[in-house]
Simulated assay, not measured.
Amino acid sequence: MKYPQVILPLRNTLNRYCLRNYATTKRTVQNLKNYPQVKLGDGKLLYLLISIYMHGETLFSRTVVQGGRAKKHPYLYAEIREELEELGLCSKVLGGGMMNINAKSQEMTIDGKCNTFGRADHHLTKEILLGTPEYKNFKITVGK
């Protein structure tokens, strides 16, 4: 019974001072907070709804919308994941779909699904888009 009393404080001390680099963690938290919630282009494009978080800290995640012109959703995700890994962030795809954005008339259509990652929650995507200053005045239509 004496071993847990000795090992537990030792493990806590190692976690605090040796195993975790707090400068890196602080930088990663800043990257998570400063990462843009929406990155889209104009015209017809594929999009992904992605949860981004620090490694091992899935409770503190952000949901972002990323879109671009690609042949398929996995190619788009490969580009996004590479960018996130450089910032020290992990990601999980919540689903995908298609968007048709017309910036001149401020209209947008969200519909479709991704065969690889499944269908994104288009209504959640709409809420995220309307919460950003760039797309708050858009008329967003959610299809089937």
Results as ranks from 00 to 15, higher is better:
residue 3 Y to F: 14
residue 6 V to E: 09
residue 9 P to Q: 02
residue 9 P to M: 06
residue 10 L to T: 07
residue 10 L to P: 08
residue 14 L to C: 03
residue 16 R to I: 06
residue 16 R to G: 05
residue 17 Y to A: 04
residue 19 L to N: 01
residue 19 L to G: 02
residue 20 R to V: 14
residue 21 N to P: 04
residue 21 N to L: 07
residue 22 Y to I: 08
residue 23 A to Y: 14
residue 26 K to T: 14
residue 28 T to Q: 15
residue 35 Y to T: 00
residue 37 Q to S: 05
residue 39 K to Q: 15
residue 39 K to G: 13
residue 39 K to V: 14
residue 40 L to Q: 04
residue 40 L to T: 00
residue 41 G to A: 11
residue 43 G to I: 10
residue 43 G to V: 08
residue 44 K to W: 03
residue 45 L to N: 07
residue 45 L to Y: 08
residue 45 L to R: 08
residue 47 Y to V: 00
residue 48 L to K: 02
residue 49 L to Q: 01
residue 49 L to T: 09
residue 52 I to V: 00
residue 52 I to W: 00
residue 56 G to C: 04
residue 57 E to N: 12
residue 58 T to K: 14
residue 58 T to C: 13
residue 60 F to G: 15
residue 62 R to G: 07
residue 63 T to W: 13
residue 65 V to L: 07
residue 65 V to T: 11
residue 66 Q to F: 10
residue 68 G to F: 08
residue 68 G to Q: 05
residue 69 R to N: 12
residue 69 R to H: 14
residue 70 A to Q: 06
residue 71 K to I: 04
residue 71 K to V: 08
residue 73 H to N: 07
residue 73 H to P: 05
residue 76 L to F: 01
residue 77 Y to P: 01
residue 78 A to P: 08
residue 79 E to C: 04
residue 80 I to W: 01
residue 81 R to E: 11
residue 82 E to M: 04
residue 83 E to C: 03
residue 85 E to I: 05
residue 85 E to P: 08
residue 87 L to S: 11
residue 87 L to C: 10
residue 89 L to K: 02
residue 89 L to R: 01
residue 90 C to V: 03
residue 90 C to Y: 09
residue 95 G to S: 10
residue 98 M to T: 06
residue 101 I to P: 07
residue 102 N to C: 11
residue 102 N to Q: 10
residue 102 N to A: 12
residue 103 A to F: 13
residue 103 A to Q: 09
residue 103 A to N: 09
residue 104 K to D: 09
residue 104 K to A: 09
residue 104 K to L: 10
residue 104 K to Q: 05
residue 105 S to N: 13
residue 108 M to V: 05
residue 108 M to A: 02
residue 108 M to E: 02
residue 109 T to L: 09
residue 111 D to Q: 04
residue 112 G to K: 02
residue 112 G to N: 07
residue 113 K to L: 12
residue 113 K to W: 10
residue 113 K to Y: 10
residue 115 N to E: 08
residue 115 N to T: 13
residue 115 N to Y: 12
residue 116 T to K: 01
residue 116 T to Q: 00
residue 117 F to E: 02
residue 122 H to F: 15
residue 125 T to F: 10
residue 125 T to D: 11
residue 126 K to Q: 06
residue 127 E to W: 11
residue 127 E to R: 06
residue 127 E to G: 04
residue 127 E to F: 12
residue 130 L to E: 11
residue 131 G to Q: 10
residue 132 T to P: 13
residue 132 T to W: 05
residue 133 P to Y: 15
residue 136 K to N: 15
residue 137 N to I: 01
residue 138 F to M: 06
residue 138 F to K: 03
residue 138 F to E: 02
residue 139 K to T: 15
residue 140 I to N: 01
residue 141 T to W: 10
residue 143 G to K: 03
residue 144 K to A: 06
